[in-house]
Amino acid sequence: MTQVELLEVNNIGISFGGLRAVDNVSLTIKNGQLYGLIGPNGSGKTTLFNMITGVYKPTSGTFYFNGENLTGKSPVEINKKGIARTFQNIRLFKNMSVIDNVKVGLHNKHKYTMFESILRLPRFFHEEQKMEEEALELLGVFDLDKEKDSLACNLPYGKQRKLEIARALATGPKLLLLDEPAAGMNPNETEELMETIRFIRDNFNMTILLIEHDMKLVSGICEEISVLNFGTLLASGKTSEVLNNPEVIAAYLGE
């Protein structure tokens, strides 16, 4: 595996009025890594995600993706560069079918103009065909192909999480950000999710950064982790080392 730096965050920070939500955080993620981000509630993990995906504009610091400065770019541009994400509170397109959710993710990959769709020119059928095939393939990976025509809101919770990951993967990212993928899952489902995450990493050549509170999942699959506390970086490094760090134990894990 090539150990090239894929994401480099330098002293990034953001203030909302007088509140310094994230301050001076730096981290480096290498190609192909499974990287964890942990910390107490309100420590700024999701805010950091929102900055990396362009939802918030950082008020200080920069981040580089694949050697390119993407600080302050829009979510659309950042997604096109190859960063995709899921959300802590699932954000599916609830009134669309399962397969259409994935097809929206393929929107920028197989393009045709609105004009071509109005006149139903050959390109339309050609690209639609490709979209259908790729969407079915992705759904197959997540075992969702049987439910392809049901509405996304009718899926059980665990499958909704999976569909959200499938949709993010459809955009063809290099880096996948997962925001608490195991939230609300029972131990069995979590176990299955760990398998899925490993599978994605190996089969899609993906680099994954994930926020998680489930320590079993984090210590089970993450190679490196960072710990946030009150918006600042408390520790980062090899998972086992960080989890034995007395400061981390005091701030987050508990004695």
Binding site: V55, N108, L119
Partner: peptide, 28 residues
């Protein structure tokens, strides 16, 4: 024909969840 196309799906996705639509590269 607009609605039943990739463009229609993009438009509907904005209605269902604008933030998610942006996160997967739909130009709102």
């Amino acid at each position: 024909n607009i609605v039943a196309s990739s463009h229609g799906r993009a438009i509907t996705s904005i209605r269902d969840n604008a933030i998610a639509a942006e996160s997967i590269g739909i130009n709102i």
